[in-house]
C-alpha cells in the first residue's frame, strides 16, 4: 500500500509562532509558577516556610475546586459567571439545613450540592437548548443564585459548628496537609482522568473545538454541554461546603468575586475564553496556585487588600491578552 508522507513532511516544518505556542502551552505555566516561587522565596523569609505553603494551599482550595467546573465549561466552549454566587448558594443551603433546621449532615451536604447543581443545570439548558449566549445566561443565573442565597440568609449569617466542616481544615492526613487540600488534589486527579480517558472528555474537547463538526460527527452536543454546566454547578456546591470548613461561617460576602478568580486561574492555566477545546484541567490548578501565591505574597509584604483586587484584574487582563496573542490565528 502506498503510504503518503506528504502530510507528515509538511507537518515537520512548523511555523516559529506555532512552536512557540506549543512550548508556551507545555511549559509556560509551570515556568511562571516556578519563577514566582523562587523570587518570592528569595525576597521573603517566611514565604517558603512549610506552614505558609500549607496556608497557600488551604487558601486556594475553594477557588481551585470551583475552577475545575469553570474549566469544564470553558473547554466545551462556554463561560460561567455564576460560579461565585453558586458557591455561596451551596454553602448557604447546606448551612441553613444543618444549622437552622437541624437536618442531618448528609441532607445538608446533598442539599447544598444539589442546589448548586440545579443552577448549573439551568445554565446548561439556557445556553445549550435555548441558545442564549453563555455570558448573558450565566450573568442572569449569577444574580439569581446570589439572590436566592441572600433570601435564605435573611440578611444575616450562619455560624456552622458541625465538627465535620471544621475538620476539613483541622484534620491533617499526611505531610500535615488538611483534608480539604487532599480533596482539592483528589478532585483534580479525577477530573483530569475523566477528561483524558472517557468518551465524555473526548466529546467535551470536540464540541468546544468545533461545534459544527461535532454535530456532523454525531456527538450529542446538547447533552454534553448541559452536563458540563451541571458539573460546574456541582463543583461550585462542593467548593461551597469546603468554604464553610475554611471560614466556619456563612455570610453573603463569602464568595464575592470568586468567579473572576476561577476564570483567571483557568486562563493562566492555558484555557481560552475565545476558543473551547484547548487546555488541560490540571493546569488550572497551577493557575490557581499562581493566583494564590501572588495574593499570599502581597499579604506577607503588607500590601493592603484594596490593591489586591486591582492586581487580580491586571493579571486577568494579561492572561486574556496572552490568549489572544497565541490564539488569534483564526
Amino acid at each position: 500500500m502506498a503510504v503518503d508522507v506528504s502530510g507528515a513532511t509538511a507537518a515537520s516544518h512548523e511555523a516559529p509562532l506555532e512552536r512557540a505556542r506549543r512550548a508556551a502551552e507545555a511549559f509556560g505555566t509551570v515556568a511562571v509558577a516556578g519563577l514566582l516561587l523562587l523570587s518570592f522565596g528569595l525576597t521573603s523569609s517566611v514565604f517558603l516556610e512549610p506552614a505558609n505553603l500549607r496556608n497557600i494551599l488551604v487558601q486556594i482550595t475553594v477557588v481551585g475546586v470551583a475552577a475545575i467546573g469553570e474549566t469544564l465549561v470553558l473547554l466545551v466552549g462556554g463561560l460561567d459567571l455564576s460560579v461565585g454566587a453558586n458557591v455561596l448558594l451551596g454553602s448557604v443551603v447546606a448551612g441553613d439545613l444543618v444549622q437552622r433546621h437541624g437536618a442531618p449532615l448528609w441532607v445538608g451536604i446533598a442539599g447544598g450540592v444539589l442546589a448548586s447543581t440545579g443552577i448549573g443545570l439551568l445554565n446548561g439548558v439556557l445556553t445549550a437548548v435555548i441558545g442564549i449566549e453563555a455570558i448573558l445566561a450565566t450573568l442572569g443565573t449569577f444574580l439569581l443564585a446570589g439572590g436566592i442565597a441572600k433570601i435564605v440568609l435573611h440578611s444575616s449569617w450562619i455560624v456552622v459548628d458541625d465538627p465535620f466542616f471544621g475538620n476539613l481544615v483541622r484534620t491533617h492526613v499526611f505531610w500535615q496537609l488538611p483534608v480539604m487540600v487532599i480533596v482539592l488534589f483528589a478532585l483534580y486527579a479525577v477530573a483530569a482522568a475523566v477528561m483524558r480517558m472517557t468518551p465524555f472528555g473526548r466529546a467535551v474537547y470536540a464540541i468546544g473545538g468545533n461545534p459544527r463538526a461535532a454535530r456532523i460527527a454525531g456527538l450529542p452536543a446538547v447533552r454534553i454541554r448541559i452536563v458540563a454546566f451541571a458539573l460546574a454547578g456541582a463543583f461550585a456546591g462542593v467548593a461551597g461546603l469546603l468554604q464553610i470548613g475554611q471560614l466556619g461561617i456563612v455570610s453573603s460576602g463569602n464568595a464575592a468575586g470568586l468567579e473572576f478568580q476561577a476564570i483567571t486561574a483557568a486562563l493562566i492555566g492555558g484555557l481560552s475564553v475565545s476558543a473551547g477545546g484547548v487546555g488541560r484541567v490540571e493546569r488550572t490548578l497551577l493557575g490557581a496556585l499562581i493566583v494564590g501565591m501572588i495574593a499570599n505574597y502581597q499579604t506577607i509584604r503588607g500590601i493592603p487588600p484594596n490593591y489586591q483586587q486591582a492586581l487580580l484584574g491586571g493579571i486577568l487582563l494579561l492572561a486574556i491578552l496572552t490568549d489572544r496573542l497565541f490564539r488569534g490565528r483564526s
Binding site: A213, I216, A217
Partner: peptide, 21 residues
C-alpha cells in the same frame, strides 16, 4: 475545516470521535 475536523485534536482522536463506543 468548518464542519469536519477538530483542528487541535490529534489525527487519531479525529478518527475515533464517531466510534467512541
Amino acid at each position: 475545516q468548518a464542519e469536519g475536523l477538530f483542528p487541535d485534536m490529534s489525527v487519531r482522536a479525529n478518527i475515533s470521535i464517531s466510534s467512541l463506543r
